[in-house]
Amino acid sequence: MIEIRFHGRGGQGAVIASKILAYALFLDGYHTQAFPTYGAERRGAPVAAYVRVDNSFINVRSPVINPDYVIVMSGKLADTVDVSSGIKENGLILINSELDVDHYTFEERCRVVCFDVNRIALKYGLGTKIMPIINVPILGVFAKLTGLVSIDALKKATPKFVPVKAERNIEALEEAYNLA
């Protein structure tokens, strides 16, 4: 089983991203599961969302505490939330940040990749400069880095969960995939 944890703030779309990823993996032929940890839903509060992937039905329903992959929706979150907590050895942390990866140091032995997804989101008119909406393009980066999910499946899954600006999101997804 492969386990993925998203860290975001309410309104950044981490929960939607987890659903798109799970759905895409389902289209790729896997058994998957996606669910959030909720406080009461509110903008700005830290949220986590989880995706599990396996070759058989997923029974376990507890939060992911030992992820293979961690996706951080904004670099600032990595300064305040323990995003590397429990990550498996040689796991991957993908951070949406324009900073160099040296800015982020974690105790765990894992690979860290920083990618400026905000720039791509803004280029395609997703969100605002203060709050770019990167939840779809960051999955393009994730797909390229991990090879876990196909870009075609992500393109198919996106409009199901992002009915507004679906086309622009898919373009941003492809660009992020190609540049990563």
């Binding site: 996606a34 669910f35 959030p36 909720y38 039905f57 329903r61």
Partner: peptide, 10 residues
């Protein structure tokens, strides 16, 4: 609630 109501599954 949540662990089933808000879980996306097949």
């Amino acid at each position: 609630g949540f662990i089933l109501s808000h879980t996306l599954e097949e």
